[in-house]
Amino acid sequence: MNPDASTIAAGAPIEVDLSPVAEGQDIKVFWRGKPIYISHRTKKQIDEARAVNVASLPDPQADEARVKSGHDQWLVVIGICTHLGCIPIAHEGNYDGFFCPCHGSQYDSSGRIRQGPAPANLPVPPYQFVSDTKIQIG
């Protein structure tokens, strides 16, 4: 009952061109049936994410560990709330990040859980930069 061959094949890595995404914007792409948020973060958002005392977070993780170094403005996360799988809304909530409408979880501009019932940060999918303006997810 595990995924069949065609499902696995359809889940192969995808390439996303980042050049049309302006600063402060974000796009949602689907990979393996899951929404992936790619945010072009502003300076303010990056600073906010880095100013937090990491140890005080429910799921401690530094912002540097959640982005690729040299591409600090790009945040790539799986947009599925770690509570019960709803899709959070980008650019909402009190932390300049994501807000889940189902049970009120709030994530910050690094996709880390800050408030609400969700137990963990929004997961970062496996990805790498193919060039400065193109990433491969998967």
Partner: peptide, 13 residues
Amino acid sequence: VTLLWGGYSVGNP
């Protein structure tokens, strides 16, 4: 969960 879904999310399988 993957076994229940037959995929990477709730879908046709």
